[in-house]
Amino acid sequence: MSETKKMITFHVRKFEPGRDAAPAWRAYSIPLSKGMTVLDGLHEIKRTQDPCLAWRYSCRMGVCGSCAMLINGKPTLACNTQVSAVSEKEICVGPLPNFNIVRDLVPDLTPLFEKHQAVKPFILRKDQEEMENPSGEYEQTPHELEAYLQFSYCIRCGACMAACPTFATDRDYPGPMPLAQSYRYTSDSRDEGFEERTRAVDRASGVFSCHFGSECSAACPKGVDPAKAIQLMKRRMVWDYLHFLKRKKPCGIIHGQRTTGRRENIPEPPEYTIPQK
């Protein structure tokens, strides 16, 4: 008895600037297999029907953020989205909105990276000598780590930028990802760059342009809450203006090696399974 394979139709938005006058939808029908992700489906289309179809991907496991696209109207990662979870019959795949299109499903993420760079997404310290020639580790407690931990899970995929209604109309607005990252570094106990970062976001079309629509948080495939980070950044800046902000000294440095030894209650590691030379 022959088994009839279930088919699914992918409607893909195709566009090649310079050749096409406008983007157009093209339908591809492919067999649906168990566990198939949208990225797998695109690979299948490229292999069997349209070798010219272009999209961006790398890790295939929701870590690199390259394959963010608009899937049935929701900006998310193609590698992290099971086809059967979206639809059993038809699926619409387009490039991330709010960005120019390089080709087909490839958005031009240059504005995202430029805006990200503008907020100085790295630890800024006033002790320049220590920054250039570190003499030890920064001492940070688990409690201090928790202040920014969830915002550090951002993979810069751009899904939040595609979902943001403010970024859709105001191209000067930094967008959820850069603003959330400005808070991520500002709330890091190792950092001293609040003033410098504030200069980048405390302006017209800056952090205060956020309407708190929270679409960015709903879209984030990594469960980061950029809307929360933006509100916390706003609060910090207002508190700073009112002189209510407690200025904390940045965490210290542990010079040299730790003197504490191995704790007694930690069991020894198992034997090597392969003999060591």
């Binding site: 504030t198 405390d202 302006r203 017209a204 800056g206 952090v207 205060f208 706003k234 800046m237 207002v238 700073d240 203006y241 009112l242």
Partner: peptide
């Protein structure tokens, strides 16, 4: 002008 000032006064 810094918008944190304007925003604060907007709230007030």
């Amino acid at each position: 002008m810094r918008h944190s000032r304007l925003w604060t006064w907007h709230i007030f």
